[in-house]
Amino acid sequence: MKRKITFLTALLAIATSIYLIAADHNEALGVQDTGSDIADLFAYQSPQNSNNLVFAATVKGLLSPSATTNAQFDENVMIEFNIDNDGDAIEDLVIQCIFQDGQVYAYGPYAPMTTGLNSSIDTNAPLAQAGITPYGSNAIVGSSNGVSVFAGPRDDPFFFDLTQFGAILGGSATSFNDPGTDAFEGTNVLAVVVEVPKSMVGTGDSINTWIETKRKQ
């Protein structure tokens, strides 16, 4: 018998096609300053192993160093990576990450029990697990069956020159500077990173991927 944990309501989704960058920092109404607020999604070929793909999500953006010390993942929130490998904009596979007692649990990739806004975790699905890395510590990575997972606070990897962007919109500038000024410098996020073999996500030349945060029902 399949055992399942049910989660309800997608709070925010960011869609992309490999290679990607998308950003939204602490702007989702109703979930600002919570572990449900998605900052970024990154998906790319592993620089260490060209046979692997890396999926990375960041939540709870704009954390100051002092706030980062005590920042924690919400144990009632699941971060779900959705993978569409046949181009129909419906998830064929999911990687579902939950947090409990200082650990991250990454189930998948596997065919979801349900698609859309509501999700359930099949707790018999493939699982990789790791301790959540404390702030300022070296990364703790857990691996199982070729899948690796990391979770913990990290410096925000997204670079954006907000001041110059405003100048361009206002008509006082026509392009970005090189180098620009990173508006997110000095702020942190809570990051979840999962690396999987390409063979686990399909046989085509490309995939579509997006993330959702879902709260336990």
Rank of each mutant, 00 (worst) to 15 (best):
M1G: 08
K2T: 11
R3D: 07
R3P: 03
K4L: 09
T6I: 11
F7A: 08
L8I: 12
L12N: 12
L12S: 12
I14C: 03
I14V: 02
T16D: 13
I21V: 09
A28G: 07
L29S: 12
T34L: 02
G35W: 10
S36P: 01
D37L: 04
L41R: 05
F42E: 13
F42T: 07
Y44P: 02
Y44S: 07
Q45K: 13
N51L: 08
F55N: 02
A56Q: 15
T58D: 04
V59H: 09
K60W: 02
K60H: 10
K60T: 12
L62N: 15
L62K: 13
L62C: 01
P65N: 07
T68I: 05
N70I: 10
Q72V: 15
D74Q: 07
N76W: 07
V77A: 09
I79V: 14
E80W: 00
E80C: 01
N82E: 14
G87S: 09
E91D: 14
V94H: 14
C97N: 11
Q100H: 13
Q100G: 02
V104H: 05
V104N: 04
Y107E: 08
G108K: 03
Y110W: 01
P112F: 10
P112C: 13
T114I: 02
L117A: 14
N118D: 13
A130P: 13
G131Y: 08
I132P: 04
T133C: 09
P134M: 04
Y135N: 12
G142W: 02
S143N: 06
S144A: 13
N145S: 15
N145T: 01
G146I: 00
G146W: 01
V147N: 00
V147H: 02
A151L: 02
P153Q: 06
R154S: 13
R154E: 11
D156W: 03
P157L: 00
D161G: 10
T163S: 08
Q164P: 00
Q164I: 06
F165L: 02
I168Y: 05
L169N: 02
G170E: 03
G170N: 12
G170D: 08
S172E: 12
A173P: 01
D178R: 04
P179N: 05
T181S: 14
A183H: 03
F184S: 06
G186T: 00
T187S: 14
N188H: 13
V192T: 11
V192A: 10
V194R: 14
V194G: 11
E195H: 06
P197K: 04
V201D: 01
V201C: 01
T203H: 08
T203K: 15
G204Y: 14
D205L: 10
D205H: 09
S206P: 00
I207M: 12
W210I: 01
I211S: 11
I211L: 15
T213K: 07
K214A: 01
R215Q: 13
K216V: 08
Q217H: 07
